[in-house]
Simulated scan of single mutants.
Amino acid sequence: MKSLPITHATLITALGAGLAAHAAALQAGACGLRPCDFEDVVLPGWIGPVAGLEQVALPAALAGHACRNHQLAWLGLQQDGFAQAVHAARERWGAHRVAVLLGTSTSGILETEHAYRRRGPDGALPGDFHYASTHSTAAVAHFVRLALGLEGPAWVVSTACSSSAKVFGDAARLIEAGLVDAAVVGGVDSLCLTTLYGFHSLELFSPEICRPWDAGRCGISIGEAAAFALLQREDGADAPVGRLLGVGESSDGHHMSSPHPEGAGAALAMQRALADAGLQPPQIDYVNLHGTATPNNDAAEDRAVEQVLGRDVPCSSTKGATGHTLGAAGGVEAVLGLIAIREGLMPGGLNLRERDPGLRIHYLGANRRGTVRHVLSNSFGFGGSNASLVLGAA
């Protein structure tokens, strides 16, 4: 692909709000996780909630879309002047020439969970519950489109953890085809009962804080996040914060909830991303791993990275700091990759006690400083949906 400028980016996670807060948190080795205390959930485990989210009020014009997921999206759009940057792009290109392409996993399902608890004697859901504007998978793209005053193509990708990485590829294809001039991409996923109880039932919600690449790892800690990036055509675009150099996607379909044990689909996504970027493996300076801290996922990704890049490239997972933000993870980690490039910082993975001796790639247990020109960011979802992004310096 022809590289695309990423002119603006922002994110909000359990680590804080905005680029500066995340850069500082990564440098300090901060962790945003805490023991699970979400609503009335009684489960052993750790979560990464966004501070102050419950107090966020939407503008009156958007009040009909109120739900936790949209409160999170709204709060994310207010960081780092992102909404203002999109408004400038809208003026430059026209509202109909700016796309909104987002990833999510559960969207506003928490509203449905609350509505179900309030159903009437006949089983009917309450009259103030509006599925289409809250829980519907497409709802978050519609909400962001309205919030930003955009009229271009809009859709949501929901392929589990790869969702908000895949939309970068969608944006690149739309721009290359001449259908749009700019695209808001990213992902939003908020805490809800379904993911907490669901991952617990799959025995993937770790009772301890998640420990990627650790010999004793036993599952994920669940976080929530919103991450956004603005991609624009080269001509007339603002000075970029980074560049999208390549996108690789694959679908190995090995198993509904387990990766291919040798990481076949993951390796293919990374190979395609490198080829798309026109780069050789030694040119990757840092890999932000999918790194969920489940035994199978870390082992499969370790094999895939070794196959494609060898054992020497510095790698780490940032999920020990943010938790696994599910459908938002790809967008979050892409923006963290941009921070790594800007700051010359390869963040060490948190919570590592004893490295798994069966995993062989160069996993960072502490921060490393150095020039970072190219970052590979991995996102691998349920059902074998894999996406890798190559990001470059501005």
Rank of each mutant, 00 (worst) to 15 (best):
G331E: 04
G323A: 08
L352M: 11
Q78R: 14
C67T: 09
L125G: 05
E151A: 13
H255I: 02
F143P: 08
V86E: 08
P35W: 02
K2I: 14
G392N: 06
S377V: 01
R119Q: 12
A154N: 03
R243G: 01
D356K: 04
S162I: 07
E113C: 10
S190N: 01
P259G: 00
H255N: 08
A63K: 15
G370T: 05
H142K: 05
N296R: 12
C210I: 02
V50F: 04
G186R: 00
V50S: 05
G94Y: 06
R311N: 10
W46S: 09
R211F: 02
D80S: 06
Q79Y: 00
V167H: 10
G198D: 06
E208N: 04
G186Q: 00
S388G: 02
G246R: 07
L148D: 08
T159V: 13
I175M: 14
T195P: 08
T292W: 00
A20C: 15
E301H: 01
V86D: 04
L75G: 00
G248T: 01
Q71D: 12
V313K: 03
A334M: 11
R118L: 15
L244N: 11
K319R: 12
I6F: 00
A141K: 02
L77C: 04
H8L: 10
R369T: 10
S251K: 03
P35Y: 02
G223R: 06
A321P: 01
A215R: 15
L204W: 09
G365N: 14
L58W: 00
R353H: 13
F205H: 09
S257C: 13
K166H: 08
V56W: 03
G358H: 12
L110W: 15
A20P: 08
V56D: 06
L364D: 00
A51C: 14
G216R: 14
N378F: 00
T134A: 13
R90Y: 00
A239E: 15
P121E: 12
R360P: 01
L58I: 02
N297A: 02
Q271Y: 03
I339A: 02
L150D: 14
G149K: 10
A138S: 12
P347C: 06
F228V: 05
A266R: 13
T294L: 00
V167L: 11
A61K: 12
N367D: 02
S107P: 11
P207T: 03
P207Q: 11
A299W: 14
S3P: 10
G348V: 03
A95N: 14
C192P: 08
P126E: 08
R272G: 11
E343T: 00
D285L: 09
D170H: 15
D356N: 11
V180R: 13
V86G: 06
A215I: 04
G349C: 13
N386S: 06
C192M: 08
G81M: 12
A393D: 08
P314T: 03
G64T: 06
G331I: 01
L204Y: 09
D214T: 03
T134E: 10
G384S: 09
Q271E: 13
A293T: 05
H254A: 14
G216P: 05
R243W: 05
Q79H: 04
R34F: 09
A273Q: 15
A141V: 04
F228H: 03
I222E: 08
A329G: 12
G108P: 02
S105H: 09
H87N: 08
C192I: 12
G248D: 05
E111P: 08
D189P: 01
R373W: 06
L289T: 07
G291C: 01
R233T: 07
V287S: 10
